[in-house]
Every structure is written in structure tokens, then in C-alpha cells.
């Protein structure tokens, strides 16, 4: 069964085509990397999957559930960690997690248990009563990641989850994501750290100017001892200035 299936998705902002008739699918349990330069359409695609954005053409299903017709069922299965922080500035950490768990219908006792688990996992216990706007960038990222996982979703969509995160947490996060993936969770990851994608993902798609320009198993990019970064630059037509 496909965890995510996107068919002929087109999203326009006025006359600007942000995503241009893309189709891709992610298998259940897959660790999927979605790469592209800034403004290529990665975040827009994620917004269409999660319901933050509407789209003009095409359809998206999550485990065969249409994200428009059956939006509630579809949203129950996704956890989103967005690129930009979108948490109540004045909300304190444990309450933010508790409220979001509530939106997903978790009972009080289960919520409490889950919030404590995540506070420990992301080393946020000392910051549990601090308002979001007083946290450092790295801590904010941790809260955002914990929030995405609060309802134990089947699909985790992580839009640049390690941006602004220190090396220790990044390594912890990689370990944790691997563990989640081994437990059967599907992970959809975008990142500008290509070594991270190379290390974690089974399959990688590249989007450029709103179109999918590559979609294949990771190994196919790494033939003849090449690095994902070299292939990525070649495919997107990017140039590296070594001076």
C-alpha cells in the first residue's frame, strides 16, 4: 500500500506555478527524501499534502484516503514538522504539546503520558514551563519535532527538521528517525543537508522549478562512487563556486 500517492498535482499562486503536474508515491515504511533548491516547490507540495494549502489540479491520497474528501481521516495519520515555526509564541512547551495531542483526540491520561515521553526524548524537561518565544532556535525546533510526533502518526513529514539544530541533537534525531522508520513509520524528509538525506533515505526525489526531475532509489544516485550532492547539483543545474 502506498503511504502517500500524489497524482498530477498542480498548485498555482496567481499566475505563478509553484508545483507543475507532479506525480510521486511513497511506499509504506519508506524513508523518502525530497530535495530541491529554495523555491523549487518542496514546501508547497508538503502544504498540499497536509491541508495548509489548497491545490488546483490533481489528487493526493494517504493510505488510499483522499486528503480533500476525507481530510479528517487523512490528517489523523500525518505528523508535520514545518520549516517555519508555527507555534503560539506565548504557549508554554508542555501545554503546546498537550493541546495538539488533544486536537488529535488523545484522552487526558494518554496525553499526559505521551507529553512526558516526548519531553524526555527531546530533552525538554527543563524547558517544559517556558513560553515558546523564550526558547533558543534549537529548542524551538525540538518542540516542533515533538509536536509532530505527539499523536504517534503513521507518516512523519519533516520539512528541514535539522535546520538550526546543534550537532548532538541532529545525531540524536537521526537515531530516533531511524528507529521510527524501523518500527514501520513512513518518513518524508526535506533537507538541505544532503549527507543527512544520503545517510537516512531509501529513495530520493528531486524537484526543480515545480517539476520532478529525478525519482529513484538512493543507490542509483551513488553509482560509481559518486555522492548524492554531486548528482543533485548535476540534475538541478547548480554550480559550485570553489573560490
Amino acid at each position: 500500500m502506498k503511504a502517500i500517492e500524489i497524482k498530477h498535482l498542480t498548485k498555482k499562486y496567481g499566475k505563478q506555478v509553484a508545483v507543475d503536474n507532479i506525480s510521486l508515491s511513497v511506499d509504506k515504511g519508506e524513508f523518502f527524501g525530497f530535495l530541491g533548491p529554495n523555491g523549487a516547490g518542496k514546501t508547497t507540495t508538503i502544504k498540499c499534502i497536509t491541508g495548509i494549502a489548497t491545490f488546483d489540479e490533481g489528487n493526493i491520497t494517504l493510505f488510499d484516503t483522499d486528503v480533500v474528501k476525507d481530510y479528517r481521516e487523512a490528517r489523523q495519520r500525518i505528523g508535520l514538522s514545518p520549516q517555519e515555526f508555527n507555534i503560539d509564541f506565548f504557549g508554554v512547551t508542555h501545554k503546546v504539546l498537550d493541546y495538539v495531542a488533544g486536537y488529535y483526540g488523545l484522552h487526558k491520561e494518554k496525553r499526559k503520558e505521551r507529553v512526558e515521553e516526548l519531553l524526555e526524548q527531546f530533552e525538554l524537561q527543563d524547558h517544559r514551563n517556558k513560553p515558546f518565544n523564550t526558547l533558543s532556535g534549537g529548542l524551538k525546533r525540538r518542540v516542533t519535532l515533538a509536536r509532530a510526533m505527539v499523536h504517534d502518526p503513521d507518516i512523519l513529514i519533516l520539512d528541514e527538521p535539522t535546520a538550526g539544530v546543534d550537532v548532538e541533537l541532529r545525531h540524536d534525531l537521526w537515531k530516533h528517525l531511524r528507529r521510527l522508520n524501523e518500527c514501520g513509520k513512513t518518513i518524508f524528509l526535506t533537507s538541505h543537508y544532503l549527507e543527512e538525506v544520503e545517510m537516512l533515505c531509501n529513495r530520493v526525489a528531486i524537484i526543480n522549478h515545480g517539476k520532478i526531475v529525478a525519482d529513484k532509489p538512493k543507490e542509483d544516485y551513488l553509482k560509481n562512487g559518486r555522492k548524492l550532492e554531486d548528482m543533485y547539483l548535476e540534475i538541478t543545474g547548480g554550480k559550485v563556486n570553489y573560490n
Binding site: T50, G51, I52, E73, R75, Y103, Y104, R147
Partner: peptide, 14 residues
């Protein structure tokens, strides 16, 4: 304005 409406939009609320 602060984008935390997205928290509600992605949740399974009708």
C-alpha cells in the same frame, strides 16, 4: 498572522 492556525488546519478537526 502568526501562522499557528496551521496547527488547527493539519489536525483532524472538521
Amino acid at each position: 498572522f502568526l501562522h499557528d492556525i496551521e496547527e488547527i488546519l493539519v489536525a483532524p478537526l472538521s
